[in-house]
Amino acid sequence: MPETIEQQPGSPFTSEEAIVLKALARAPEKRWWCDYRFLIALCAFLLSLFTSLISAYVSHLRDVHDQQSRFTVALGALQDLNLKRVELLKQYRNTVYEGQVSELITTQVNDALHTAAELGLQLGTNASTTDLVGLATRLYDTGESATAEKLLKFALGAAQNANDESLALRALGFYTIRMGRGSTALKTGEGYFERALDLDQKYDLADHPHLVAWIRSSAQIGWAGALAPTDCAAAQKHFGKGVKILAGAPKSVNFDRARAGAKQQWITGIGGVPGCRPDAGTPPLP
């Protein structure tokens, strides 16, 4: 016979509601892992969350790929404009249009440079070390050192191997010393070069002695070029060490090009500084 409960005066519940509440109170407590309705709802929620995360990740990858494509196009446009500038300036040299052409093409180059820089900053370490270093070098040439430094730090973070890391560290060292002022900037810049010299301790390069020679010679000569305007004696010392490594390196396209560049510095000066030439203790390269 069904249970009946008379409604108590002043009670907020009807007699039927009181019966239901009493039944719930008497029911044994269920463990959550035995509550199938709860488990089904939980699984549905987790599946929905997982699907949302996968969708967001795929969307992010698609956005990165799109930015990389735009970055490549921007760098290509910048390179084409630089080549076009040389061609146009040569074509209109000593004419009444020379100034106008120069101003027009320079504006276009700067616009392309800023577009590429914005994309490079957005991509960060998703861009290649080589592209970021090349772009940062152009920005330093135009005086935008703060943006260039950010790009170089992204370039260092994006390095996938010893050669990439060497390139980024040398660029950071060179511009930190050249653009910085005071002992702090000098110490920081030289720290980058010291790291570049010791990359064989970070990477397993025991089976690649020629790569070690390339990295160390590039670091020493780059270090020399950075110091040349302010400390020629130290620059000569680093240049001599780099030349010694190059002299013992095998013949190859890269080493031959590096030797040719080093030989040129007997004429132009270390790091392009005419007042700082290799000292007499540095034997010329053959």
Rank of each mutant, 00 (worst) to 15 (best):
T4Y: 11
P12C: 04
F13D: 15
T14A: 09
T14Q: 08
E16T: 11
I19C: 06
K22R: 15
K22F: 10
A23P: 06
L24N: 15
A25M: 14
R26H: 07
P28R: 01
E29V: 07
W32H: 10
W33Q: 09
L39Y: 07
A44M: 14
F45I: 08
L46H: 11
L61M: 02
Q67C: 01
R70A: 03
F71A: 13
F71I: 09
V73C: 02
A74D: 07
L81V: 07
L81N: 12
K84F: 02
R85M: 11
L89V: 05
Q91R: 14
Y92T: 04
Y92I: 01
V96H: 13
Y97V: 05
Y97S: 12
G99C: 01
Q100W: 15
L104D: 15
I105L: 01
Q108V: 04
Q108G: 03
Q108N: 08
V109Q: 07
V109R: 09
H114E: 04
A117V: 10
G120K: 07
L121C: 06
L121W: 05
Q122S: 15
T125H: 07
L135D: 08
D141W: 14
T142I: 13
T142V: 15
G143H: 15
A146H: 10
E149L: 12
L151I: 13
L151K: 07
A162Y: 13
D164E: 06
E165I: 14
S166D: 10
L167C: 07
R170C: 05
A171F: 03
L172P: 06
F174E: 03
Y175H: 12
Y175W: 08
T176Q: 12
M179R: 07
G180V: 14
G180H: 14
R181I: 07
S183M: 13
T184G: 03
A185S: 11
A185F: 03
G189C: 02
E194I: 00
E194N: 00
R195T: 02
D198P: 00
D198I: 00
D200H: 04
D200S: 08
Q201F: 01
Q201P: 02
K202C: 12
H208M: 13
V212P: 01
W214E: 09
Q220L: 08
A224M: 00
C232A: 11
K237N: 10
K237L: 11
K237S: 14
H238G: 01
G240I: 00
K241L: 09
K241H: 05
V243E: 03
K251I: 06
S252R: 12
V253M: 09
N254K: 15
F255H: 09
D256E: 04
R257C: 11
A258W: 06
R259V: 05
Q264H: 06
I267F: 02
T268S: 14
P274S: 10
C276Y: 08
C276H: 05
T282K: 04
P284R: 10
L285D: 06
